[in-house]
């Protein structure tokens, strides 16, 4: 019965996720139509001739009524067709995104893993250490790293590890696994710094709260050794909020990835995005906005569902 309650919660959340996705699709569709001015004129620029304009208009479906355009757009989406790039002739939007998405996702996921591992460890250490210095160090580090912008962190990393120590590449991206793992290290660190700080603060507070609870004292009074208390009771109780943070941060991390990609010269979604915006490549902008939205909605859905299975109390809510 309890398990069924958990599944019905997941079902309810997937309903919400589908609704959110639908509104993202509508918003992204309206995005291009609502931008003032004629996109065709902007795209063609000096090459503008009425014939070329008419042809492009037909290619972009802009010669039809808005409802017809919407139907065509949805039809395209269902077939996985996001249109043609106007700047990179001959490439479909799907193609552009498919080329860049894996790079960005590997950067974001590496950043999350690093942030979670480093953040949780530091937070737990700060909370359980009996030496005051550990706590103070972790908190000072957190404050410092929180106040330094991501691009500066990236530049500092390049300066120390690439230019001074010469142990890691300063940037670039060999398009081959596993060579690119080496090129992922510094960008992932740069991306994870803020996340790690947020997580370490939450874990530290969570651990301190947990340690003050009656069940911890009861377990202590039963004679359970401190190591077991920390690993089996403090840790599971204080990492629950980490899931929420990761879920909330996913969107921010994708945005952060754009900057990190720019600094390290990584050909990811961010690089495609900036290029597309600069060249007024509306179909690509539209496609990337859609994919980013979908990824964020899906990730927070996954996180919320995970919650249901990690925290037994969430199943009955």
């Amino acid at each position: 019965m309890k398990a069924r309650a958990g599944w019905s919660r997941v079902a309810r959340m997937s309903g919400q996720a589908v609704l959110t996705l639908a509104s993202i699709v509508v918003l992204v569709f309206l995005l291009v139509r609502l931008i003032p001015g004629d996109p065709v004129k902007v795209i063609l620029g000096v090459e503008y001739t009425p014939e070329k304009a008419a042809a492009l208009r037909a290619q972009l479906n802009l010669d039809k009524s808005i409802p017809e355009q919407f139907v065509a757009y949805i039809g395209g989406l269902l077939r996985g067709d996001l249109g043609q790039s106007t700047a990179q002739r001959g490439r479909s939007v799907t193609d552009v995104i498919a080329g860049a998405l894996p790079t960005t996702m590997s950067l974001v996921i590496a950043g999350i893993l690093l942030g979670v591992i480093v953040g949780t460890t530091l937070g737990l250490l700060a909370a359980i250490s009996t030496r005051r210095g550990v706590d103070v160090t972790v908190r000072t580090w957190g404050m410092l790293s929180f106040s330094v912008p991501t691009f500066l962190v990236a530049l500092l990393l390049i300066f120390v590890f690439a230019l001074s120590l010469r142990i890691l590449p300063a940037g670039g991206w060999p398009n081959a696994w596993p060579d690119n793992l080496l090129y992922l290290i510094l960008p992932a660190i740069a991306l994870s710094v803020h996340l790690a700080t947020a997580i370490s603060r939450t874990v530290r507070q969570g651990a301190i709260d947990t340690m003050g609870q009656q069940h911890m004292e009861a377990a202590f009074a039963r004679g359970l050794p401190p190591r077991l208390l920390n690993l089996r009771h403090v840790l599971p109780n204080s990492v629950l909020p980490v899931l929420t943070i990761v879920g909330i941060s996913f969107g921010t991390l994708l945005t952060g990835a754009i900057i990190v990609e720019a600094v390290f010269g990584i050909p990811g979604l961010g690089a495609e995005m900036t290029r597309a915006v600069g060249r007024r490549d509306y179909p690509v902008v539209q496609g990337i906005a859609l994919v980013t939205g979908v990824v964020v909605v899906l990730s927070s859905f996954v996180v919320e569902s995970l919650y249901t299975f990690v925290d037994p109390r969430a199943r009955t809510l």
Binding site: Q213, Q214, E217, A221, H233, P236, N237, V310, D311, P312
Partner: peptide, 16 residues
């Protein structure tokens, strides 16, 4: 020597 604490929801670890 063992302790039986006050009866309350929080005397057992809630996630175990």
């Amino acid at each position: 020597m063992a302790l039986v604490p006050q009866a309350s929801l929080s005397s057992l670890d809630p996630v175990m």
